[in-house]
Design a protein around this nucleic acid. Sequence first.
DNA 1: GGAGGGTGTCATGCC
DNA 2: CGGGCATGACACCCT
Length: 461
Amino acid sequence: MSIMELQAMEVNTSLQTVSNGGSARNETAESNSAGDFELSDRPTPINQDVSLHQASLPSCSQDFPQIFSPQLGSVTINPRTSMVRLSSSNSTNINSTFGATNLTGVFLPPINSSSNNVTSTPNLPDPFTTLLEESMLDEISLLDLAMEEGFSQAQASQLEDELDSDSGLSLDSSHSPASPSSSETSCSSAASSSSTSANFSEEGAVGYSTDSEVAAVETEEGAVGGYQPEYSKLCRMSFQDLSQFHGLPQLDSISHNHTYNVPLSSTLSEQPDLPLSGGKKTTRDKKLQPSQDLLDKHSSRDERRARAMKIPFSNEKIINLPVEEFNELLAKHHLSEAQLALIRDIRRRGKNKMAAQNCRKRKLETIINLEQGVQDLRRNKARLLKEKMEFIRSIRQLKQKMQSLCQEVFSQLRDEEGRPYPPNEYCLQYGSDGSVLIMPRGGMTAQQSRKPEKKQKDKKK
DNA sequence: GGAGGGTGTCATGCC
DNA sequence: CGGGCATGACACCCT
């Protein structure tokens, strides 16, 4: 961006004539350190040896910003017999900045280029053309990528409009063009995930809940209705902590019987073949008599089995007691083998039930976290795309500025006969010693048209 | 009545 | 080696 300072550069068109070519050569050597641009002038033959040697350009590998160092302060035309000096008020040494850089492409405006139109870009020679071409290609690929990401044509143009606005605002997630619709949805779920995750972290293990409790939860869900995103799934699982239901009047009617030791009714005794373990819910399980329905409506199968087998303690104890206490509990009671087997199955199933609940909860959390990660990556991608577009725009502006500067430089240049140097025949070349040479473009063509002479390095100063 | 989601349970592997 | 946890798979239930 420092090249913009050149816009205010005061160009001194005073012509300094050096009568002695040899002295001019010496002067060139001395003035190189000043960083002035020296342009060989006619009719002095251009020193092809020197200029071509200096034409070797490592330039393309140079960092782009360095090309536009503010140290570029003055332009001096110093032919063998005459020197055109274009100087600014603050001439500085550009040597350290430019190094051995070929300015041929940089300073040479496109042939017949009288405007700063961007369309003239392809005419710019290396290295600037390379940069610009890369920019344009990147821009194309950028837009392609944007399209690939779901950009519509309008959205892509809108993105460019936003870039032109110089707002500097980063794309917010809600404005992410990558996935407008999904972004909304996922953002909501992502936002919910944060609170949900926090809830989980505090919640810890779900804890064993009876079917009656689950039924209460399902009753609560029924009041909500409709599809619920992952948040509702997690809430559903979290709600199995009954403490969260305190104060919910609609749940007051649900009685939670955790005693499980209610004497078994005749109904269960009528089902002696009730499997002790395994087996899915069968229609037989549901064929309870009306009075039993009230009792077992919210009881799990294991609870009913426990009552059927007259287990003298609750399923909650069976499941949640530590192993030692559990074994002590079993030792305190004289239990049959069938009862012991059922108790162990109840404990196993109860723990596995909690494990399954936790497993599913973790799975949902993982999904939500992954969705959050996708959203974060999309936002980051959109931000990078915007930055890239801004860089492309900056390069475009710099290119236009450079073109105008090149035109200005060539408009000031005159050979010994007062003829201007056609930009399409000559180009500027920057030497490693800080000198700037004007060289015929394309070698012989310009020389043939202007009685080519060998350029002398010392003369260029 | 089928689809989809939730839940309980089993089997299995791992610690 | 037994207990417990994690998880895929399956069946069942509900909406």
